[in-house]
Design a protein around this nucleic acid. Structure first.
Lengths: 234, 234
DNA sequence: TAGTGGTCTAGACCACATG
DNA sequence: ATGTGGTCTAGACCACTAG
């Protein structure tokens, strides 16, 4: 049994999700909701508070309540700490296409040196367009077979931790803007030379070795990296 | 003038931050707070709700309210990162060029709403080429004069904290790739349409207001954002 | 059984935006 | 002047936990 305010919040959420209420549309005022649903104002406000926190609606005193326009890039993955990076890796599935020993050019570009296997593929969420082209380098003696990678619904780094007992001690992450080359642009279905967010992550074990390095190229508009940093509690 | 429930939330937050209330300690019950502060239960609950959302306290029906033990996720962002954002702002000097009330387009693009002043300028390190074009929005009643901004060798957010006593509670940071428009490209000396890293930072105070928002457009190759995430001991 | 937080009602006054 | 959402009061009943 759900509390009344949550039922109402869910009703409204459904109206918005289904498109019956579009961005910019006005919601009923608090008093209207009170009469229609036969509830007190407090209950109505609690329902609206939930939707406000979720960013679905915006409220302005003296004006009313409207459905917000969704943030421009649909994918604002809130990633603030290490854990949610792994979460991101789980949500946006890596679809491997082929594997081979890493080339010298790749090794240099991704800032490592040694015997690595390279996995090339796409990163997808639920939608149709791929989120990114991704290259993953794994130290040779830890590298799984391509078939196994395809089976993994978790992240490769977690597989390595489970399979080999290697512990990731920290992750160094780097972000910058680049222009897409012809090949990558074609795979993403965007014009050659168009902007992309390049994220490079190096997973370092306790010995300081990069056991896994991943590079993703996210075309503009399909992905934004968002993190919340909270002031320290001293 | 802050609402009563927020004053009380801030009082309690201070008790926790200062260590007078340690993790595991019990807070007063709702009824005790009502009598001590001479407020209604609703007001007390609203204050406690804020702290619950911030993860500072945990509440259990039939038991009471206690200060939470600081999160011990397997991985966490080193606390230094909040400070290093401010550090970045100090290193790469913001050179203001002009100021005016923020336009509706700017407000929408930067995800805020209200009366803000806009400061437009370039960001430079030691070298010759500018690192980025930057737009900074500051809440009207906190906004410094353009001449003062030029004098600041620290960051504007720190100036605000010192001058007005406003405390930045957290920073939400967003990164994505964009194509540079004609004007910005010209100011940076790169071709129109070339890639740039857009970083948007919203500095949020304890009341949840964005007191300052900054947007920087870093052309490809001149800037990369790098962060290190360390595994936390349990 | 007593006390906690969770939910809900029925009022009230206010600051603010709009016509 | 009217109506909006923001704040606040003073009650109430409930589910749950613990002694």
């Amino acid at each position: 049994m759900q509390p009344r305010y949550r039922q109402i919040a869910d009703e409204l959420r459904l109206l918005i999700a289904s498109g019956k209420l579009k961005p910019g549309d006005a919601l009923p005022t608090e008093m209207e909701m009170c009469e229609e649903k036969d509830i007190s104002r407090h209950t109505a406000r609690e329902a609206l508070r939930i939707l406000t926190e979720d960013g679905l609606i915006a409220r302005r005193r003296g004006v009313g309540t409207v459905v917000t326009t969704p943030p421009t890039p649909a994918f604002a993955q809130p990633i603030g700490d290490f854990e949610s990076i792994l979460q991101y890796a789980r949500d946006a599935v890596f679809i491997p296409e082929r594997t081979r020993p890493a080339s010298p050019a790749e090794l240099k570009r991704m800032g490592v040196d040694g015997p690595y296997m390279a996995y090339l593929g796409l990163r997808r969420a639920s939608g149709e367009a791929p989120l990114a082209v991704t290259t993953i380098l794994v130290l040779n003696h830890l590298a799984p077979a391509l078939e196994d990678v395809a089976e993994l619904n978790g992240s490769i780094s977690e597989w390595i931790e489970g399979e080999h007992g290697a512990a990731v001690a920290n992750v160094v992450q780097r972000m910058e803007a680049v222009a897409l080359g012809k090949t990558d642009a074609a795979r993403l279905g965007v014009p050659s030379g168009s902007p992309a967010l390049r994220t490079l992550r190096r997973y370092i074990d306790t010995a300081g070795r990069a056991i896994l390095v991943s590079e993703s190229l996210h075309p503009a508009g399909r992905f934004a990296y968002e993190m919340k940093l909270t002031r320290q509690r001293k």
